[in-house]
Computed example of a mutant assay.
Amino acid sequence: MARAVSRLAQSEGVTPTPLANAWLLKLRESVPYHRGRNRGLSVAVAISGRKIVTYRKNRVVNDSGNIITMHGDTDYDATVEASRSEPYIALKLQLPPDLLAETLIRFVETGTQAGKTETDATFFCEPLSEALADPLLRLVESFGDPADCHVLAPLCLQEICYRILRSNAFSVLKSAIAEEDTRLVRAMRFIEAHAHRNDLSIDQIASQIAMSPSRFAHRFSALLGMSPMQYRKQIRLEKARQYLLSAQISVALAAEAAGYASTSHFNRDFNSAFGLPPRRYAETVRKLGTVRS
C-alpha cells in the first residue's frame, strides 16, 4: 500500500485519481492548524507522517497503519506533522452516498443489523485491518489501467464500504436503519434524474417516495451524512467533472451543463469537492493517462 500510494502521490498537495471520490494528499511541511469539514462517509489512510484530528472532545492520531472514518456533516480541527524526509502522505476516499445507502439497506435485508452500542460512528480511528487493506490496495492499483479502473474500481469501493460498515464503529448507524429507509434509494435516483432543475425542492422529492418533507430530510441526512440538496450538488459537480474529462469542454460550458449560472460559484464548489480548480484538475487527471469517463 505504501509503495503504491507513494508512487502516485508525486506532487505537493492534492493529487486526483481517475475516480471522483478518491484522491491522494502529500505535504512536506507541517500544518499547525487546519479547519476541515466532512460530509457523507469519508475514509483517510495515512501512509507516512502524522495527522492529529480533533472533533468535539475526541482527539485521534492518524499515522502509518491507521485509518480514520468520519460520517455526517461535521466540522473538525486538524494539525499535520510532516517534513521533507517524512512527508505526510494519505489516501482519501469519500464513499458514494448511493453505495452507502444500498449497503445499509442490504444489512436490513440480510438481517445483519447490529444492536445499539455506545460506539460513536461519527468519528473513528483504528488500525488498518488486512481485510480492509486488501480492497484499498486493489483500488489504488486499478488506477494504472483504464479497464481496471472502469470495471474493478467500483467493485473495490463496494467491498470497502461493506468492510467499514461491518466494523463496531458503525453499529449505531446500522441499528438505526428502518424499513422505510429503502425508499431513500428511490429518492436518490429521482435527485440524480432531476439534479439539473433549479426548482427542485425537498417537497417534490419527498412526494415521490410518500414521505413528509421533514421526515425525508431528517432520514436522508442521518443515514447518508449530507442533506438532499448537498447530494444534488454532488451530482451536478460529478456531471461537470465528466464533461471536463471526456468532452474536454471549457470550464464555463461545464458549469453551464451542470446547472450553474455563475462560473465563479462553480469554481469554488468544484475546488471544494475535488481539491483543485476545474482546469487544473482536468489537466492533472489527463496526465495520469487513465481517465475514467
Rank of each mutant, 00 (worst) to 15 (best):
E86K: 09
A169F: 06
A176G: 09
L27I: 05
L19V: 01
R241E: 00
P228G: 02
A22Y: 06
P154R: 08
G225C: 02
P278N: 03
R186C: 05
S83T: 08
Y33G: 06
V291R: 08
V108A: 14
V61E: 12
T17E: 04
R189G: 10
P213G: 09
V185D: 02
L152S: 09
E141P: 01
I249D: 07
L224A: 05
L8Y: 08
P32K: 05
I164Q: 06
A147Y: 12
Q158H: 13
I68A: 08
Y260A: 01
Y243S: 13
T117C: 11
D145T: 01
N58V: 14
I68M: 12
I202K: 08
V151C: 05
A9G: 04
A121T: 03
T79M: 07
D77N: 07
Y55V: 09
N168L: 12
D77L: 13
G40P: 00
A176D: 14
I209K: 00
T284W: 07
L157P: 00
T74R: 14
R232H: 08
S264E: 02
Y231F: 15
G144R: 15
V5Q: 04
D181S: 05
V80Q: 04
T103E: 12
V185F: 00
R166S: 12
S167L: 09
A133K: 14
H218N: 10
I164Y: 09
E130S: 14
L173Y: 10
R84V: 08
V31W: 01
A78L: 07
Q248S: 15
K239F: 00
V45Q: 09
G289S: 05
